[in-house]
Every structure is written in structure tokens, then in C-alpha cells.
């Protein structure tokens, strides 16, 4: 119920944005990567960003994470300027293989976030078990990442991010390297995890269907320099369903619209 109320707020635009880009321009190595980007993400909103390769999706996400500082303009989090990354904002990287500690087991990798949050060693085991169960890895606590499949490693990274108890979850093509079946399973898991935690999500993807399936709103970026080219609210009922949602006339309409947009940017 709480999340439904939140969603209403989102749609009416009443709440102050959790993440706000205000005329953000970023220049890296003499090249303007993002230009004059203004964007508000409401608390509890699921925002998807799509766009051609190299249009600045990852860069926009890194700005939201505080890993980059804008050359001009402002990025605010809960009304405060973002000067550096913070624990309330968790990032799921696409290259899960590089984002996990190979010398720590699954439990140890989740523990890293709990340790950083100052949880005592007595409290950690129970919390680790709970988190691993949440992402469907209850029996793999003592495995090293290298002993796990790609899908399992990505679940583990998500578990570590959940351990941060983030207000905002940033996901950069998190399922890009996974096969279609694993991908769909994880999409639904992320939706239910997010619904349960009420976190705000910015989700970057190449996959237009994925963006519409997951999002409350989809933004398409134009390249060179990166800026907003299209913005589509997604009025599809929740909970979403892999079969019926994807057959919904609204889904097909949005898909068509996004597809035409992407095709136009690639010319």
C-alpha cells in the first residue's frame, strides 16, 4: 500500500525529487559528454535510461552516483549537493566479475557492505544469510565468486548493494551479459525487491523491452553530446508479468515509439 501511495506521488509530481540533475554539463578530456541535462527522479520511482552505445548512459549514472562531479550545473540528492559517493546510493555494475572481491566468499562479499556500515560482527551472519536468501543464493554462502555462474555473481552483487540499505539503486546494464532466461528471472526479482524496499531506481539498459517492462518512466538519450531526446511515462499495471505485460497494447505502442526514436538517433 505504501508503495502505491508513493507511486501516486510520483505520478502527480508532488514529492521533491530524490535525485535532481540541474543543467548538468560534463566535460572529460576536452570532450563534452553530457550537455545541459536536467532531470528529476522521484522517491520510489523506477526510471529507465536507454540510448545508442556511447551516448553517455554510464556517464549519467556515474554523475548520479557521485563518482563524477559535473563541470557545470548541479546534481542534488534529497536536496543536498552530491559531492562524493554515499552509502545510501548503491551501484550495480555491469561487469560483476570485476566488482566482486575474488578472495572473499559470497558471504564475505556481502559482509563488506555491512562492515562498511559499521554493523558488529555478531549481527552480521544473520543479516548475510537473510540477504543471500533474498537474492536466491542461500546455499552458496561459502562459494567464491569464481565458483559461481554469471547470473549468480550478479545476484551476489545485488545482495551486496541491498546490504547498503540504499535509498537509491543505480543499475548499469546489470543483465547485459546474461542469457535471456536468467535475465527475465532477474528482472522480476529486481521488481519485487524494489517494491519491497521502496528504493528509487535508475536502470540503464540497451534493451528497449526491458526498459518498458521495468520502468515507471523511460528516457532516451541522444548522443554527442548526451542529452534527453525522448521521455515516456509507462502506464502499465503493476505487478508486471512477463507474458501479459509484454502483450499489452500500451507496451507495444511504447516499444514502437522507442524503437523509432533509437532508429532515428542511429542515422
Amino acid at each position: 500500500m505504501a508503495s502505491a501511495a508513493k507511486r501516486l506521488e510520483v505520478l502527480s509530481g508532488a514529492a521533491t525529487p530524490q535525485i535532481a540533475f540541474d543543467g548538468v554539463t560534463l566535460v572529460l578530456g576536452g570532450k563534452t559528454i553530457i550537455e545541459n541535462l536536467s532531470l528529476g527522479v522521484q522517491p520510489g520511482e523506477f526510471l529507465c535510461i536507454v540510448g545508442a552505445s556511447g551516448c553517455g548512459k554510464t556517464t549519467a549514472l556515474r554523475l548520479a552516483a557521485g563518482l563524477y562531479q559535473p563541470t557545470s550545473g548541479k546534481v542534488n540528492f534529497d536536496g543536498q549537493p552530491m559531492r562524493e559517493p554515499r552509502r545510501e546510493i548503491a551501484i550495480v555494475f555491469q561487469d560483476y566479475g570485476k566488482a566482486l572481491l575474488p578472495w572473499r566468499t559470497a558471504a564475505g562479499n556481502v559482509s563488506l557492505a555491512l562492515e562498511a556500515g559499521g554493523m558488529t560482527s555478531a549481527e552480521r551472519p544473520a543479516r548475510i544469510e537473510e540477504l543471500l536468501r533474498t537474492v536466491g543464493l542461500p546455499d552458496h554462502a561459502s562459494k567464491y565468486p569464481s565458483e559461481m555462474s554469471g547470473g549468480m555473481q550478479q545476484r551476489l552483487q545485488i545482495a551486496r548493494c541491498l546490504a547498503q540499505e540504499p535509498k537509491t539503486l543505480l543499475m548499469d546494464e546489470p543483465f547485459g551479459a546474461l542469457d535471456a532466461m536468467t535475465r527475465q528471472g532477474l528482472q522480476d526479482e529486481v521488481l519485487s525487491l524494489v517494491a519491497a524496499s521502496g528504493a528509487t531506481v535508475i536502470f540503464v539498459t540497451h534493451d528497449l523491452d526491458e526498459a518498458i517492462y521495468l520502468g515507471d518512466r523511460v528516457i532516451g538519450l541522444l548522443p554527442h553530446p548526451g542529452r534527453i531526446g525522448i521521455e515516456l511515462p509507462v502506464n502499465l499495471p503493476r505487478p508486471r508479468d512477463q507474458l501479459s505485460t509484454r502483450e499489452h497494447p500500451e507496451f507495444l505502442r511504447l516499444r514502437r515509439q522507442l524503437f523509432d526514436f533509437i532508429k532515428a538517433t542511429e542515422q
Partner: peptide
């Protein structure tokens, strides 16, 4: 791996923790 330093930054780990962990 530079990615791990980014993980550490987003966890706001202390310098000492970054070195030892």
C-alpha cells in the same frame, strides 16, 4: 581492479579499510 576502488567509494570505506580489505 579500479572497479573495486569505486565499490569502496560507494561504500564510503575509510582509507585504512580500503588498504586492508
Amino acid at each position: 581492479e579500479p572497479r573495486l576502488y569505486e565499490v569502496a567509494r560507494s561504500l564510503q570505506m575509510s582509507r585504512l579499510a580500503v588498504i586492508f580489505k
